[in-house]
């Protein structure tokens, strides 16, 4: 029972972070209308990479791994900002699909700009108390590479 509760807390943490991106409270966030899920799923998602467009002729591995389901667009960014690398699904996409695309775009940018993807584990830490609040945060952290406004 306790394990089940902790597991549900972690799942809730990930879900909560996902919802945070679209929350609309009075006085918080934007005043604009909100995309319906189908429109949101079809939006181009983009990172700007500080590199010449030629560096992106061949798609970085994390993005290439998504295969033909994804279409990409590479255009020079205005000013001195490098290259805009955008991608979206050709067909319907789930929240999980979109999360994978966000992570792939972020990792692609890192690979081109710094040559490697930041690793975090194992990292030193003390005893992790297994509380619902702690597992909620674990779930949010685990989801955070795949969440965000990207």
């Amino acid at each position: 029972m306790a394990n089940s509760l902790l597991s549900r807390a972690a799942d809730a943490g990930g879900a909560l972070l996902g919802r945070l991106q679209s929350v609309r409270l009075p006085g918080v966030g934007t005043a604009s209308a909100k995309d319906d899920p189908a429109t949101a799923a079809r939006r181009w998602r983009a990172v700007t990479v500080l590199a010449d467009p030629g560096r992106l002729t061949e798609l970085p591995a994390p993005l290439a791994a998504l295969g033909d389901r994804v279409e990409t667009r590479v255009i020079p960014a205005p000013g001195d900002k490098g290259t805009e690398l955008a991608a979206r699904y050709r067909g319907p996409a789930t929240d999980e699909d979109i999360g994978r695309l966000r992570q792939a775009l972020r990792e692609a940018k890192q690979l081109v700009e710094v040559g490697e993807v930041l690793r975090m584990d194992p990292r030193p830490h003390g005893e992790r108390a297994q509380t619902p609040g702690g597992r909620l945060l674990d779930g949010a952290v685990a989801a955070s590479r795949r969440e965000g406004v990207l």
């Binding site: 972070l17 945070l20 991106q21 972020r106 940018k109 700009e113 955070s144 795949r146 965000g148 406004v149």
Partner: peptide
């Protein structure tokens, strides 16, 4: 851009 491995949190905030 590349040093926060948990971008989803502060993008939301």
């Amino acid at each position: 851009d590349n040093s926060n491995p948990n971008p989803g949190i502060t993008e939301g905030l």
